[in-house]
Write a protein that binds this DNA or RNA. Structure first.
Lengths: 229, 229
DNA sequence: TCAATAGTGTCTTTCAGACAGTATATA
DNA sequence: TATATACTGTCTGAAAGACACTATTGA
């Protein structure tokens, strides 16, 4: 092939919910271009030297970066391909095409994330701040917009919100996760009704124990799986 | 960057509806690998030689290939990014990462497509045949599966079916397009009711004339646009 | 005239939104 | 005991599935 080749990277929009607020993980760039600016974590897809050794899959690259940035094992993380961004000039150094991913980290695991990032400056940003006040490197603002569209569009008809609560959770906790994603309040009674339907459908089940807060203790549930049949 | 770089291609799952049947455009490969096998149309993303000249965007590459394969102008075509496939070994020659797209061609334009393909062997396949009887090159069967999932999932809550009927169309024609995509029958009365709601919402409007077939002539409509507000 | 499709309407079920009301913890 | 939240239930309207029925054309 007598074509020039682009570099291919993966970029990760990693979300969690802390303090009833949707957060995204950003890292501060130590090198040019965009030195000092906040950016999405990411890295190059490793490509082998020959036809026989072709390197890692794009998905493996995303998981590898995700594990490196969060320090969390693969099976505790949710990862979904978002979109590929390939506008020329998006990286001023050279042609870079990036495959963007959405990842979700459970809030009980989120506090350990900071330690995992090899001394890089990494922080959970409220998505409000990340979008409004903070200029992001490259076209990462576009990626964040697309990622938010994706999770906001899916949260009410998929199982992704279970990736943003602890392994066992109350109805109010799940509702709070929905509200953090959508940035809007849900009617508690109506949310509970939908939730109870999930229970009769076998999507969720009662877990032992109760959650004790400042008021009446609530039943605890666990996610079973998206309707076996 | 001291990394090996992959080649990046675009592959197109181009659909139309002919004879009330969902078709996909395949081309027969003239060269190894997979010589003689049917494959999705596609090609390399053009990458410039320097930081200043970085080449075309991935979307432009998809449109360029689409125009080359169909001979149709860009504004008559629907194009949407599907998914990026990057498993090592998917091309035995070298590492190739492909960005797959879904394209829709209106049935009134589909018959001209064959002429546009520079003498290559190109054919509309019924998706039934394409999936069941025909082995496709590379991982193109996976791409076709994903493309079908995409359009089948979207057809009932988006405007894509208007891309698979002529500029003016009857309710029965639109219903037939839905049925071709889903491979299932819709109740004519219920479909008409949903359709009429689109009319009151301003999504569609009556067009002049009537469609004369073997029976009672039907009203003709045109697509106005996805709900102005 | 009759077969086929265009086009209308009805019944039932499901589910969402709005919201009232009861129960039971802890402060 | 007061208040916040857990939890239950009711009313209404939108919309889908099943299906019956009328209207009008070309063969």
């Amino acid at each position: 092939m007598d074509f020039n080749r682009p570099s291919v990277t993966v970029d990760l929009a990693i979300f969690t919910v802390l303090d009833a607020d949707l957060k995204i993980l950003l890292i501060r760039r130590k090198l040019a271009p965009f030195e000092g600016m906040w950016a999405l974590p990411g890295g190059f897809v490793l490509v082998g030297p020959s036809a026989a050794e072709q390197g890692e899959s794009v998905e493996d690259a995303a998981y590898r970066e995700l594990e490196e940035e969060t320090g969390l094992p693969r099976r505790t993380l949710y990862l979904e391909q978002l979109h590929t961004f390939g506008r020329p000039g998006r990286d001023p150094r050279e042609r870079v095409i990036t495959v963007a991913w959405v990842a979700l980290v459970r809030p009980d695991l989120a506090p350990t994330v900071h330690a995992g990032t090899d001394a890089a400056d990494a922080r959970w940003f409220s998505v409000r701040d990340a979008l409004a006040d903070t200029d992001l490197a490259f076209d990462h603002s576009d990626i964040v917009d697309a990622a938010l569209d994706r999770i906001r569009g899916k949260v009410d008809y998929s199982s992704i919100s279970f990736e943003l609560v602890p392994p066992t959770f109350t109805i109010a906790e799940l509702r709070s996760a929905h509200e953090a994603i959508k940035g809007a309040a849900y009617d508690p009674g109506n949310f509970r009704r939908r939730f109870k339907r999930m229970q009769t459908d076998g999507v969720i089940a009662v877990a032992p124990g109760r959650r004790h807060t400042a008021t009446k203790p609530a039943k605890v549930y666990r996610f079973v799986g998206p309707t076996p049949e």
